[in-house]
Structures are given as structure tokens and as C-alpha cells.
Nucleic acid binder design. Structure first.
Length: 675
DNA sequence: CTGTTGAAATTTTTT
DNA sequence: ATTTCAACAG
């Protein structure tokens, strides 16, 4: 096939603006892509275009926000190219394009060149909760729990630390701006963080933030930096509005001239400033790269016009820099609904009723989603869904891997991989009867000498209570450290040792044991332990609790998601619940004008997820669920973002008026028999 | 030093 | 409802 007809085929499905972006040359390119304007398609086709123009896949880097996004894009590029050329492309593209999150790709380079920074080859990655545990260990060591006032919780400490790193601001300023209630602890926190940094080095562990910092450091090294730079001819960054300063620096160090750089984003959808993301990155891209070209995509392919009108009205009061006005060819459609409910219970009833009605009319459950600001907002709804046997998957909530017993099992593996890993070591050792934090510390000190080995443990009997189990434990660790067994076999051995401990350690040992089996299953898909551990730290699989009452429905489930986790996704029917002032915007974010602006964008992101039907619901009062509750506001108002102008774009109703007798409420079971 | 119990405090979103 | 901390028994 000739190049020109290949070009035609790549460009054919695209609109003129998208084509412009796809065919753009090597000067830096900023694609300002409004919600639903075919951003992913544009990136995918641009990569395909590059490959078709003899840019070798292994010289293309595709940086995305989630691992899943990267995988999907690379897969789509592959599909396009193989369909168009009619032949199989040389090699497996997916493995040849450098696709992944900043963190994942950073890790890849650190595995290759980490020694240049003095990183030991077996270093392990701490996920968020590991980092918290680590901080907690140090916090008790430093005896920061004084009696007069309470020290911030480990999670808050980790938040503060991470914010400090990702925004490159001094601790004092971070506290003043984002954690004013912790200001008085400045000196203690400072000591804590210094110690944390030092101990991470000692234990050969990197947290998420370190992955970025170390990657940047690598790029700043003359030899490695140029070695990495010369490997790449094209670098594409998705969701650029949600990158932070370090990430922008990484990009700059990867391609100082901006040659071959494409960034894609939407300043109206910047919602990750709590993670240190800086909207300046996208706004100042044209300044940083003066020869940059800007292409704006405004034609929306996702939603109907009435939904877009509402979305445009919601974002209008924001001070967007790259003004966009989304439009669609789908002129007709139902106006979105603004639903007032008496309380959360009535809201849940309404939502479920509507979901079932849409389902009856042929919309699968998985094409419908309920979105909310904070993970716990969905709890009343979940209770009701469970009661009625409606299956759902929740995203952004608790992860499968965060369950204590799963973390335990993984800690065995991590410790075997890196005997110096303090968090994993503490975790594993404290599981054994008769061993607490103090003994665990001593034992870890004994085995962390000369790079770390478990041999010294063979000579020790740590305590009478542990006398029985200790030799077995040491055998297990020695065996795992040898690394001869396959990964599933290793996990199996861990299970044999660990499962008998479950009943002593936790309630419900039986379901937990089942989870361990499942973990073994998951592990069988991975080649080696190191990859498995890294993947699982960087990309924890979302727990998919199956509440399916009916096995036929196992493959269809309603989606519940936080708005943050809904980024980039779309559904036919979208419900936004708890759209009250105090939830959207969240009470915790009303401190500064900037954070209120971010909440507005968050609401905008939620609204623009809907393709055909949109319901924005708000309960007018809250239950004072328990007298213990310190949040017992009686009356709630609808979100301040639902201005009169925005409200006009909705049909206002009350949940009650839609609610008929419970008797004619459609049920999943009844409809099921009809299928 | 470990493991348990009860009282007190408690700020969302996630790679 | 959950997490943290202090006090106390073994």
C-alpha cells in the first residue's frame, strides 16, 4: 500500500482540526481537547501517523495518566496499523512503544540505570499505604506522640510530605496553605520527613514521589541523560493539565527543544491539584516552547446538545485560559434532570428506579454510572443495591490490595525481594506470635547487613512463643529469597505458612483465605516477582466486589465511581449524587478561591461524562445517622455551581414526584425472565 | 516486650 | 465507623 493512501485511511475518520493535530510536524504541539472531543482518537491516530512515517515504535514515548489508558491506546494504534497495512507489523507494537504512566516509565528507567544513582538493583516500590506505614514506624520511633496535643495521623503526614515534594514548596508554606490545622507541628514534621527520606535510602525503597524525583535526577546526569534523550523521537503526554512541576521538568529534560513533543489536555478539566498538579504547565506551555503550535478541539462526539449546553453553563463562570465552546451534531435529546430528594435514602431510591427503567429500555447496567465526590457518598446507595441484588463495581473505593491479609501476603514477597525493605519486614515479622515492633526491629537490623540476607536468622530464637513457628518461617524466607520457584509457587508456599495464622489475626478468616487463592491466580499471569510487585504497587487492580445475585448478570454491572476516577470515561446514563453545597464543592475545599475553582471543574468533568441522559441529584436534608456524628447538618442546599443560568439548562423535579408505588417498581429479577 | 482493652479524636479526591 | 493512643496484664 502506498504511503499516500495509507495517509488517507488514517485521516479519513477524523475532522479537520483533528487531522491538523495528527499531521503536525516535529515542532512542539499543544492539543487543547475539550471533553469528549475525540482526544484519545487523536493521540492514537497521531501515533499511527508517526509509525506510518517511519518513526520506529521504540522511539515513541506515550505518557498517560493511568496504566489502563496507556494499554488501551497502544492497542488501538496496533489495530489501526494492522488493519490499514493489511499485514502484521514487525514485532509486537505494544512492547515496542514506551507507553505508561510517568511513574511506570520512570521505574523502567530506574531499573535500567538506577546504579548510576547508587540504587541497589533489588529496590522495591512503596505504594501509598506502605509509605504511610513507613512514616508511622518513624513517628513512633521519634516519639512524636506527645500527650498534650495530638500529632497528625499517618495518612495526613503522608499527604503533607507528598504535597511538599510534588509542589516543590517548603514545608512551612505547604502547611500554611493546605494544612493549616497542622501548622503547630512544623518542626516535628520536618524532623519526621528528614528521617523518612534517610530511611528510605537505607531500606532500598522508593515511594511514588521518589520514582519521579529519581527519574529527573537520572535525566540531569550528563551521560545517562543524553543516552535516554537520544532514544526518543516523539514524546506524547496525555492529561497534561494534571501533571505537576516535576513531571513538566522531566518532559523538559527529555526534550529541551520541544522537538517531537505533543501534549494533550484541557485546562477546564484540571482536578488533581491536591496531588501537586499545576495548571500552569498547560497554560504556560506556549511560553515555555515559543515555537509551539496550538490546536483546539471543540466538536464533541460524546454528548447530546442539551447536556453540553448545561456543561458549558456550568464552566462559564470559570476563568478558563483556553476558551472552548463545546458543540455537537446530536442536536436533540432529553434535557438533563435536576432532582431534589428529601434525603439520601430517597435519592438512592430514585437513582435505582431510574437505573432499572433505563435497563428495561435496553441500556446495559455497565453503560450507566453513578458518580460522587467522596468515596463514602455511595454507601447508602450501595446498601440498597446490595439489598436488591443489583450487581455493581465500585471504582476509587477500597482496593482489593488494601485488605490487610493481601498486604500481608505481598509483604512476604517484598521482603524476599528486598530484605532491607523495612515496611515489609515489620509487617511480616509482627504477624508471628510473640514478635512485636521491638523484636521485629532487631531482627531486621540483623539481616540488613551487607545488602541483606536472612542467614543470620537461622541462629536465632527470638522468643519462646515463636519457638515453634520461627524455623518454618526462616526456611520459607530462605527459600523465597533463593528465587528458584515460580511466582505462583512462591505465593503458594506463603499461603501454606500464612493461612493457619489467619484465624488468630483477623475476623472472617474464610473469605480472606479465598482472597489469597485469588491472589495466587492473579500472580500466575506474571513472569517474575519483581515485575509483579512493581505492577501491583503502581497499578492496583480495583476491587471488583461481585454482588451479583444472579449468575447470568455476572458480566453486567452498574458502575459506581468517584468523579476523579471517572476521568476520561463515558456512559450512556450518568447520575451525579449528593450535588449539595458541602459535597460539591466539598467543605474541605472551600478555603481558597483556587480550590473552589477546582471543584467547579470537577463538577464539569462529572457532567461531561454523560452521553444521552444526565441526572444531577441532591438530597435536601441529611440524616443525623448517629448521635456520635460530629457532622450533623440538618439542611443541605444544592451546589453553588448550579447557578440560575445553569439551572435553566435542567428540568427540575423532585424525586418524590417521580416515585410511584413501590409495587410497580421494576426489578432486576422480573426483567430478567423477560430477557 | 507483647497483646488486649477502652477511650478519644477525627478533613476528599490518587499515581 | 475507624483509627490512634495509653494503660495494664501476662
Amino acid at each position: 500500500m502506498s504511503v499516500s493512501s495509507l495517509e488517507d485511511l488514517i485521516l479519513k475518520p477524523l475532522n479537520p482540526r483533528q487531522q491538523e493535530a495528527v499531521t503536525h510536524g516535529t515542532d512542539p504541539l499543544l492539543i487543547v481537547a475539550g471533553a469528549g472531543t475525540g482526544k484519545t482518537a487523536t493521540i492514537v491516530h497521531r501515533v499511527a501517523w508517526l509509525v506510518a512515517h517511519n518513526v520506529p515504535p521504540h522511539t515513541i514515548m506515550l505518557l498517560t495518566f493511568t496504566r489502563r489508558a496507556a494499554e488501551e491506546m497502544v492497542r488501538r494504534v496496533e489495530t489501526i496499523l494492522s488493519r490499514l497495512s493489511g499485514t502484521q507489523l514487525p514485532g509486537n507494537l505494544a512492547t515496542r512503544i514506551w507507553g505508561g504512566t510517568f511513574h511506570a516509565i520512570g521505574l523502567r528507567f530506574l531499573r535500567m540505570f538506577g546504579e548510576e544513582l547508587g540504587l541497589p538493583p533489588g529496590f522495591t516500590v512503596l505504594d501509598r499505604s506502605d509509605a504511610e506505614d513507613f512514616i508511622n514506624v518513624i513517628r513512633t520511633d521519634l516519639k512524636l506522640a506527645t500527650t498534650d496535643r495530638r500529632f497528625p495521623k499517618k495518612g495526613t503526614c503522608a499527604d503533607i510530605y507528598s504535597r511538599m515534594v510534588n509542589t516543590c514548596l517548603p514545608l512551612r508554606q505547604v502547611l500554611a496553605e493546605f494544612f493549616p490545622w497542622c501548622k503547630e507541628w512544623h518542626d516535628e514534621l520536618d524532623r519526621l520527613f528528614r528521617e523518612y527520606t534517610a530511611r528510605k535510602k537505607e531500606s532500598a525503597t522508593l515511594d511514588y514521589d521518589d520514582l519521579l524525583l529519581a527519574w529527573l535526577e537520572l535525566l540531569n546526569k550528563e551521560s545517562v541523560g543524553s543516552e535516554i534523550r537520544k532514544r526518543f523521537r516523539a514524546i506524547l503526554v496525555d492529561e497534561y493539565q494534571d501533571t505537576n512541576i516535576i513531571q513538566a521538568n522531566i518532559l523538559y529534560r527529555l526534550a529541551p527543544t520541544g522537538d517531537g513533543v505533543t501534549v494533550v489536555g484541557d485546562d477546564a478539566q484540571a482536578i488533581y491539584s491536591f496531588r501537586g498538579a499545576s495548571i500552569k504547565n498547560i497554560l504556560e506551555f506556549p511560553k515555555q516552547y515559543p515555537n509551539a503550535r496550538i490546536v483546539t478541539l471543540e466538536q464533541n462526539y460524546r454528548s447530546t446538545m442539551p447536556i453540553l449546553t448545561a456543561a458549558n453553563a456550568i464552566i462559564r463562570p470559570a476563568k478558563e485560559k483556553f476558551t472552548k465552546n463545546l458543540w455537537s451534531e446530536k442536536k436533540t435529546g432529553e434535557k438533563p434532570w435536576l432532582v431534589a430528594a428529601l434525603d439520601e435514602y430517597e435519592q438512592a431510591q430514585f437513582v435505582i428506579r431510574r437505573i432499572l427503567e433505563h435497563h428495561n429500555q435496553g441500556t446495559l447496567l455497565r453503560h450507566q454510572a453513578v458518580l460522587f465526590r467522596a468515596s463514602h457518598h455511595s454507601l447508602p446507595l450501595e446498601a440498597e443495591l446490595t439489598r436488591r441484588g443489583i450487581p455493581y463495581h465500585k471504582y476509587g473505593g477500597l482496593k482489593f490490595l488494601e485488605a490487610a491479609h493481601i498486604k500481608d501476603a505481598l509483604a512476604f514477597l517484598r521482603l524476599a525481594e528486598n530484605p532491607r525493605d523495612l515496611v515489609a519486614g515489620m509487617r511480616v515479622l509482627c504477624l508471628l506470635p510473640g514478635i512485636g515492633p521491638a523484636k521485629a526491629r532487631k531482627l531486621l537490623a540483623a539481616c540488613s547487613v551487607n545488602g541483606g540476607h536472612f542467614d543470620p536468622w537461622q541462629e536465632i530464637t527470638p522468643s519462646p512463643t515463636a519457638a515453634d513457628i520461627w524455623p518454618q518461617f526462616v526456611q520459607l524466607m530462605l527459600h523465597l529469597a533463593e528465587g528458584k520457584a515460580t511466582l505462583p509457587a512462591q505465593l503458594h508456599q506463603i499461603r501454606v505458612f500464612y493461612e493457619p495464622l489467619l484465624p488468630v489475626l483477623y475476623d472472617n478468616p474464610i473469605p480472606r483465605a479465598k482472597d489469597l487463592e485469588q491472589l495466587e491466580q492473579i500472580a500466575s499471569r506474571f513472569k517474575d516477582r519483581q515485575t509483579f510487585l512493581a505492577q501491583i504497587a503502581l497499578d492496583p487492580p480495583n476491587s471488583t466486589q461481585d454482588f451479583a445475585a444472579n449468575p447470568d448478570l455476572n458480566d453486567d454491572y452498574l458502575v459506581l465511581s468517584t468523579i476523579h476516577s471517572a476521568k476520561g470515561l463515558e456512559w450512556d446514563v450518568v447520575f451525579i449524587i449528593n450535588a449539595t453545597d458541602g459535597n460539591i464543592p466539598s467543605d474541605m475545599a472551600t478555603g481558597s478561591p483556587e480550590s473552589i475553582e477546582e471543584e467547579r471543574r470537577l463538577f464539569y468533568v462529572a457532567v461531561t461524562r454523560a452521553k444521552r441522559y444526565l441526572y444531577v441529584c441532591y438530597p435536601q436534608s441529611y440524616y443525623t445517622t448517629s448521635s456520635l456524628s460530629w457532622q450533623n447538618y440538618g439542611i443541605a442546599l444544592k451546589s453553588r455551581f448550579l447557578t440560575p443560568e445553569a439551572t435553566q439548562c435542567f428540568t427540575s423535579i423532585t424525586a418524590q414526584s417521580m416515585e410511584a408505588d413501590d409495587a410497580d417498581l421494576p426489578t432486576l429479577a422480573r426483567r430478567n425472565t423477560a430477557l
